[in-house]
């Protein structure tokens, strides 16, 4: 069964996820200890990785943001045919895409990869895509996506969720509605409670 949720129901996934070719992780030594550097915004993608990324010639392809930006010219045809979606990781800067792409709605799908459940940057990215950059098409979360994030993801502008493979997406559905009437305005419900109802 599919583990994809789209607009409150289980859906099939027609997109092919394109990943960057794997390279060895950069490990540095600091004060005698092995430290893995994953600082916010640090670029870990090499030019070789980008040119070596294999893009399937047909069908709907979900491309790494960095690959799309670097190889944009060669992809124009497919973008026009609505065959290109974009994915980015939570530490990547959305602005690098905005700088080269005036209209995000040329992409039928944008997805954000969250490596760890506890990484809440995904919520701000969803909010920015929807409220600042005017993105209206499908916004999906994938990676370490479990049911207890869904309510917050939904409120941050996401409408599609690929639940982690070892979990039941059907059961996860109910968590989209953990709370009925939120206090604050966000992406889905823009008005705070005091502008929606009369509270005495």
């Amino acid at each position: 069964m599919s583990n994809l949720i789209y607009q409150n129901a289980i859906a099939t996934d027609d997109w092919t996820l394109v990943e960057l070719p794997k390279i060895e992780k950069v490990v540095r030594m600091q004060a005698g200890k092995v430290v893995q550097f994953h600082l916010t915004g640090e670029s870990t993608i090499s030019a070789t990785q980008i040119t070596d990324t294999v893009i399937p010639p047909n069908g709907l392809v979900l491309l790494p943001m960095s690959v799309y930006i670097a190889r944009k010219a060669s992809l124009e045809n497919r973008v026009a045919k609505q065959e290109v979606g974009i994915w980015l990781a939570t530490h990547e800067r959305l602005e690098t895409l905005i700088e080269v792409e005036a209209d995000l709605n040329r992409f039928p799908l944008i997805t954000v990869f969250v490596e760890r459940f506890s990484d809440g940057r995904i919520f701000s990215l969803g909010n920015l895509l929807r409220t600042r950059y005017g993105y209206n098409n499908t916004l999906r979360a994938f990676g370490d996506v479990l049911r207890d994030q869904l309510y917050f993801l939904k409120r941050s502008g996401f409408d599609s969720y690929l639940i982690r493979a070892d979990r039941n997406a059907q059961e996860a559905l109910s968590s989209l509605n953990d709370f009925t009437r939120p206090y604050q305005g966000a992406v889905d419900e823009k008005l705070p409670v005091w502008r929606r109802v009369s509270r005495k």
């Binding site: 459940f117 993801l153 939120p182």
Partner: peptide, 14 residues
């Protein structure tokens, strides 16, 4: 307090 309660964007801060 009400604004911060289940604020969706700030549910999982650093």
């Amino acid at each position: 307090r009400q604004w911060s309660t289940f604020h969706p964007e700030f549910a999982l801060l650093p």
